[in-house]
Simulated scan of single mutants.
Amino acid sequence: MKAELAANFDRGKNMGKIRTILVDDEPLALRGLKIRLDKFDDVEIIGTCSNGREAVKSIKEMKPDLVFLDIQMPGFDGFSVLRSLVGEAEIPLVVFVTAYDQYALDAFEAHALDYLLKPVDEERLAEALARVREAISQRVAIEQNAKLVELIEGMDEPSKEALTAILEKPVETHDQRFDPHLRIKDRGHITIVSVADVEYIDAAGDYMCIHVGEKTHILRETMKTMEKRLDPKIFQRIHRSTIVNLDKVREVKPHSNGECFLTLEGGTELKVSRSYKDVVGRFL
């Protein structure tokens, strides 16, 4: 298998760049897939999208050869993206990406070229790209997409009107759903802290210690209510009493005993509880 993959990889070098768009609502998943794809010389990532409506717009404007498309996205999933492309002169080859095995069958029924399970395995990724190269070299992309369009047109929900309404609805920003700032009251003074600057938060009873650079602010709050105020795509719990800003993580250190430590950009090292080790999988 590895020899066959290597042969396909070498063949791909002579085919020109495969213009690719990545679509996923999880920033870490996008980052991880991009890092893996950077190892393939013939893959050119021309764009990344964090939601379905953005994906439709980018695909129509940029006309990529290939799209790695997350199936399960809130509000407008991967299948809805494809339904919205029906009627387009060119639909790119599609490799579905999903965190759930239950969607694998749906991916095959949609005649996608291939599908990947999260966290993405490097050998499976290489196999998927081998299929992509084969499809391009044999010029079967048109036939492949004809099957895909036929399947999509047969789907009853959502209707074209519903899809149009979703596409035209303004994208909800983080500021609308989550707090962009934390207001820290101390002795009559209020300090406004940008959530994006927070490295991590740990609990001390009913108080939260907000760590921003070398400063620590104390806020009377419970862990449960704090989690609701923060964007889960950026802030994740790694311990029952610790929340970390994933954008501040600079190094992941797995240990032989199964434990793991995260090193933040300020140098702080945090232990990941075994109960939350799935968070680490997003970096790998």
Rank of each mutant, 00 (worst) to 15 (best):
P64D: 07
A6Q: 14
T263L: 08
S80W: 11
M155C: 09
V56A: 03
P92K: 01
L284R: 14
K271I: 11
K169V: 07
V43G: 00
K60N: 11
K215Y: 07
I18Q: 02
D42E: 14
G32E: 08
G87L: 05
G78N: 00
I190R: 07
N257I: 06
E143V: 13
V171D: 12
F76A: 01
I184N: 00
D24P: 04
P170G: 06
V120I: 11
I234K: 10
S194C: 11
A162P: 01
V171G: 05
S194Q: 15
A203L: 08
G213W: 07
M15R: 14
F235Q: 00
L270M: 03
Y207G: 10
L167G: 04
A135P: 04
S273Y: 06
N145L: 09
L105T: 11
P64K: 06
N51C: 15
E61V: 12
K224P: 09
E4K: 13
G87Y: 06
R240E: 11
G267K: 02
D179M: 15
R131S: 15
Y200A: 03
K2V: 13
V149S: 08
K253R: 12
L93S: 07
G32V: 05
H181D: 13
G16M: 01
R282E: 13
L33C: 05
G16H: 02
Y103V: 02
M226L: 09
S84A: 12
I71Q: 00
F9H: 14
E123D: 12
E172H: 12
V279G: 08
K228G: 06
T191I: 09
K60C: 13
K13N: 11
T173V: 12
K224A: 14
D202L: 09
D101W: 09
V132Y: 03
P64V: 08
G188C: 07
Y115N: 02
P232N: 05
S273T: 07
S80H: 12
E61T: 13
V97A: 00
K118Y: 01
F40W: 11
P27A: 05
V56P: 00
V249R: 03
K224F: 11
I21M: 04
E269G: 10
L262V: 01
A3H: 13
L28N: 02
R124G: 08
N51W: 09
K160G: 08
N245D: 04
L264N: 04
Q102K: 15
I234G: 04
G75Q: 06
K253P: 06
K2S: 14
V195Q: 01
L125T: 03
Q144E: 12
T48P: 09
V244S: 04
L69F: 03
V23W: 00
A107G: 02
L264R: 02
K118R: 05
I184G: 00
P74Q: 10
K147T: 08
E109L: 09
D41E: 15
N257C: 04
Q72V: 04
S58M: 15
D70N: 02
V81M: 01
H111Q: 14
T225C: 08
L105P: 06
L105A: 13
C209V: 10
L270E: 01
E143T: 14
C49K: 05
V252R: 05
E54A: 13
E214V: 10
M73L: 04
N14V: 10
D41W: 07
A112N: 01
G213M: 06
H255L: 15
G87V: 03
R237G: 05
L284V: 13
